[in-house]
Amino acid sequence: MAEAVASAAVSAPALSPSAPLPVRAVLPWALFVGLLMLVALYFVGAEQGATAVFSGEGVHEWVHDGRHLLGFPCH
């Protein structure tokens, strides 16, 4: 708090490191990047198992050991 007062005269006051981030600033990132991340997880965890975007077994075979060890259902 004392630092904030001291620096206020020079420029913008320091913000508490734990000051909340506005939800409207987080939401767009959560929607777009969050969705992208979920798609990546789908390819590791489920592609060419229960459902398939690409035909064949290449993706499933490639990530096979990771799928088992990360806890996803496999064969």
Binding site: M37, A40, L41, F43, V44, G45, E61, W62, V63, H64, D65, G66, R67, L69, L70
Partner: peptide, 11 residues
């Protein structure tokens, strides 16, 4: 293969 799965999961 294992590295791909674990790294993509981590990222």
């Amino acid at each position: 293969g294992l590295a791909t799965g674990v790294l993509v999961y981590g990222v």
